[in-house]
Design a protein around this nucleic acid. Sequence first.
DNA 1: AGAACCTTGTGATAAATATCATAAACTGAC
DNA 2: GTCAGTTTATGATATTTATCACAAGGTTCT
Lengths: 232, 232
Amino acid sequence: MSPRIKYECSCVECKLKTLFFDKVETSQLELVCSSKIEHQYQKGEFIIREGDFINDFIYLKSGLVKLTRQTADDKEQILSFAKPFDFVSLLSVFSSKRYHYSVIALENTSICILSLDDVKKTILQNGLFSLNLMEKLSEATDNIILDNLEIKRKHLRGRVAHVLIYFSEFIYGKKTIQLPVSRKEIAEYIGMTTENVIRTLSEFKKDGIIRTYGKDIDIVDHERLKAISQHG
Amino acid sequence: MSPRIKYECSCVECKLKTLFFDKVETSQLELVCSSKIEHQYQKGEFIIREGDFINDFIYLKSGLVKLTRQTADDKEQILSFAKPFDFVSLLSVFSSKRYHYSVIALENTSICILSLDDVKKTILQNGLFSLNLMEKLSEATDNIILDNLEIKRKHLRGRVAHVLIYFSEFIYGKKTIQLPVSRKEIAEYIGMTTENVIRTLSEFKKDGIIRTYGKDIDIVDHERLKAISQHG
DNA sequence: AGAACCTTGTGATAAATATCATAAACTGAC
DNA sequence: GTCAGTTTATGATATTTATCACAAGGTTCT
């Protein structure tokens, strides 16, 4: 366990303040902020372990993570990916004692840890905060559900295309990216085998839809990839 | 459009009060309750249409519904089913202007319609209500996500078994049930073709796992069905 | 540098699922 | 009651995906 470093309260200036503290006056912020802990994780480290008790309210400051769970037949299954402003400790936080999933850093990641009790106290005291938080919760879970539905309705090629577009458009916002996940992780996300993910990427390459330089992927024919994602 | 019948405020005695008004004093309940409208739907009727503006906060009083959406390739896709105490207008309510899905009655169903604005006002005023509501929201969306993940990791037989167990255990709580959905709807839920759902049910029947009398289904070998559901 | 391990990659084959065709049973409208 | 449309049902075939087998390239540890 790496050391937990406690900083001065900087929530007031933090960009992430807009996430759910937007409408909270500075004075109200103090309670939540006073218990705040920042923490850094290296690529591959566990931030949350499935089964852990939920005592904290966690959100991403920088980096990228995957949410993953162990299935009954002992395989990994990826629920979703999350970047800053997406939520992290969203699922279950208010309805379960323990996490139903693990959170693992895909890049070097830093998070803010608030005491869940303090957040709950703030909810009790501050209606605007509650409403704002509810909106964020609702949006985050909505996105996970809709994304999983989209994946479910598509076939292998469409699913792989979907993931490429997801990282290119939503995570990095550019066409040349370094995929932050392995082929195996893509497979765990879309519910196909690793071999078939690799094969599909090879096909996309052969068809001139993408180019790869080592770990880097360049989306050459964005239109075509999008079409594949839509239909197939 | 059938007429909207307005009743006296009976929320105080309503069993569903426990759903989210549990910790709300009667006096506070008046605001939300005064705008309450009850409404009945026949099997097959739309309660919510995908794309509709979200003005209401809706929950089930009795009956059973499906949440469904239209995919880009113009097929129906079922997100989940909901019975009373499950949430209905849960997704998107706090984060979107329009519904991302339709809600359709599978049985005769009655709902309570509250003004979303009034619910929001209550959130602003009543912290306990907010926290309680957040727990319900969190639980409902969690269940949808976990259920969809379970389905995603299973194969045809496991998925069909999953649905049978879902209706038998969670919806009706008995082994002899009248399936409230068609084979086509099961297919739309689990992401397989109608033919294969029918075939699989025939196999279960042939293997002595279930018996069917017209629309009724009797789960004979619950253990075996559960094993099929687990592994796939 | 080498050993052990993991990721990527490719091919052959097996298994699962979709598609197409056809028909009986049921349902609603007239 | 009959017609049209839908649901259930089953079989044959095509397509998609998984499994198995093997190899090259990377990474980590020593």
